[in-house]
Simulated assay, not measured.
Amino acid sequence: MFRPGTREPEATMPLSRRALAFVTACAALLPLTLADPAAAGPPTAQAAPTSMTSLGDSITRGFNACGWYVDCTARSFSTGDNSAVNSHYLRIRALEPAISGRNHNAARTGAKSADMAGQAGTAVSQGAGYVTLLIGANDACTGTESAMTSTATFRANIDAALNRLRSGLPQARVLVISIPDVHRLWSVGKDSTGARSAWSLFGICQSLLANPTSTSQADTDRRNRVRQRVVDYNTQLAQACTAYGSNCRFDGNAVFRYPFTLNQLSTWDYFHPNSAGQQVLASVSYGAGFTW
Rank of each mutant, 00 (worst) to 15 (best):
N82D: 15
M1C: 12
E8L: 14
A276T: 12
S51N: 05
G62D: 04
N138L: 12
C205T: 07
T267Y: 07
N234R: 07
P43N: 05
W186T: 10
L20H: 04
F63T: 11
G67D: 15
T144L: 10
A45V: 12
T142R: 15
N82P: 00
G252L: 07
A48P: 15
S197D: 15
A123I: 08
Y258W: 11
W268T: 14
A123V: 09
E8Q: 13
Y244K: 00
G110K: 09
Q278H: 09
G277S: 06
S214G: 12
E145A: 14
A198T: 05
Y286S: 11
T73G: 06
N64W: 04
C241V: 09
W268M: 10
V284Y: 00
A65H: 04
A28Q: 08
G118P: 06
A84K: 02
R18L: 13
S200F: 00
W199K: 06
Q217K: 13
L201K: 13
R102M: 04
S150C: 03
L32C: 10
L265V: 09
S167Q: 13
T60W: 01
T60M: 09
L32A: 14
T122R: 10
G143R: 11
A140G: 07
G168Q: 08
P42M: 03
G5L: 13
R93Y: 01
V226H: 06
D71K: 05
H104I: 10
S207D: 00
Q206H: 13
A140S: 13
Q278E: 15
Y233D: 00
T291F: 00
L175M: 06
A156E: 11
V182N: 07
A137Q: 11
N105Y: 00
G245V: 08
W268E: 09
P180V: 09
T73I: 11
A161S: 12
S146T: 15
A161F: 07
A195H: 08
D181T: 03
A11F: 12
P9S: 14
P212H: 04
T142K: 14
T122I: 14
L237N: 04
R155W: 00
A172P: 07
T261R: 13
L90T: 06
A94R: 15
S192G: 08
H104G: 01
T193I: 11
T149P: 05
R93M: 11
N82L: 13
A94F: 04
A238F: 09
G189S: 08
L162G: 06
L20T: 12
Q46G: 03
I59P: 01
L281G: 02
P42K: 09
S58C: 03
S192Y: 10
A160E: 03
N86M: 13
V231Q: 12
G289H: 02
Y258M: 02
A25V: 15
F260E: 01
